[in-house]
Simulated scan of single mutants.
Amino acid sequence: MARRRMVYEGKAKILYEGPEPGTFIQYFKDDATAFDATKRDVIEGKGVLNNRISEHIMGALNTIGVPTHFIRRLNMREQLIRQVEIIPLEIVVRNIAAGSLSKRLGIDEGEPLPRPIVEFFYKDDALHDPMVTEEHIIAFNWASHQDIDDILALALRVNDFLTGLFLGVGIKLVDFKIETGRIWEGDFQRIIVADEISPDSCRLWDAETGRKLDKDVFRRDLGNLADAYTEVAKRLGIMPQNGVKPRSGPKLVH
């Protein structure tokens, strides 16, 4: 596909103008960053793995009625997505104490939470993505009360699906981050899932050993990040194991 005009470049992805109005091409880079990009490296193949994993998850969410910006994968590093008006919030859903939650509240990492906890963070690299409340969101007009209700409903549905998807392949979903955006269908506005869902945006632990299979491998120098992401892809049936044809992955049970 011919290279198109670049619209935006982030730490892990680039957006190009799409082939049709209302679309973008999302390109997955091999760059890995942590600690507000003070730690960075290039991990060969990371972008390919995240593209395939995010395609698998976003496509499955579309299938079960959770709307996302994903349309289809174009090649090993690019996918066609819907153009959305991004809401400037990161939505984090936590099932098990880890990372900043453990530090803030003094809870031992690995302790199951009494219920899924949803947190909001304002997207601003210069401010280090500060945690905000619903009051901040309403006061600064980042989203309406109805938007927040829709975002919470989406986040918890994604959590239910991902928890089952990963547990079915022997992985605990500790927490994850999503972004959301607005689209319009006539005069009707909808909130949909945007950005990506991959080991870059999830904490994933092996259900038996607790081995980390996410970006904490890079953050904490725990081994080879590409190997960890490859393990996730193999378990999801996206990549063949030992020459065996890829499985279709866990099935949704109605």
Rank of each mutant, 00 (worst) to 15 (best):
I91A: 02
D30P: 04
M131E: 11
R73D: 08
T38F: 05
I91Q: 00
V93A: 03
D36T: 04
P116R: 01
F28T: 06
S102F: 08
P116G: 04
I96N: 06
G99E: 07
T38G: 02
V132E: 01
L89E: 01
P67D: 14
Q26F: 11
D31C: 02
N95I: 10
F28E: 02
E109Q: 12
I86S: 08
G47D: 06
D30A: 10
I137N: 01
E134Y: 00
R104A: 14
A143D: 10
R104I: 14
I87G: 01
G65Y: 12
S144Y: 14
I43W: 02
A98C: 14
T33F: 09
E135L: 11
V92K: 03
I87H: 04
R104N: 13
E85V: 11
I87A: 01
G59S: 15
S144R: 13
Q26S: 11
A37S: 15
A37Q: 13
F24D: 07
I43F: 03
F28S: 14
L105T: 10
S102C: 13
N95V: 05
H56I: 00
K46Q: 02
K39V: 08
F121H: 13
N75I: 06
L89C: 02
F28R: 02
D129N: 09
P67E: 13
E119Y: 01
G99N: 09
T38L: 06
Y27S: 12
L89T: 02
R115G: 09
P130E: 10
N141C: 14
R52A: 10
H56S: 07
L80R: 06
E44M: 07
E85C: 05
G99R: 05
G110R: 11
D36I: 03
P116D: 04
E134L: 00
M76C: 06
V42N: 11
F70P: 01
Q83C: 09
M131L: 08
I96F: 13
R115Y: 13
E78C: 12
V118S: 00
I71G: 05
K123W: 01
V118C: 05
G110N: 07
E119R: 04
A97W: 05
A60R: 15
I25M: 12
R115K: 14
P88A: 09
L74N: 07
A143W: 07
S100P: 11
G59K: 10
N75R: 03
A97V: 05
K46C: 04
Y122C: 03
N75L: 03
L74Y: 06
T23Q: 15
E119P: 06
K46N: 02
T68C: 01
V132M: 00
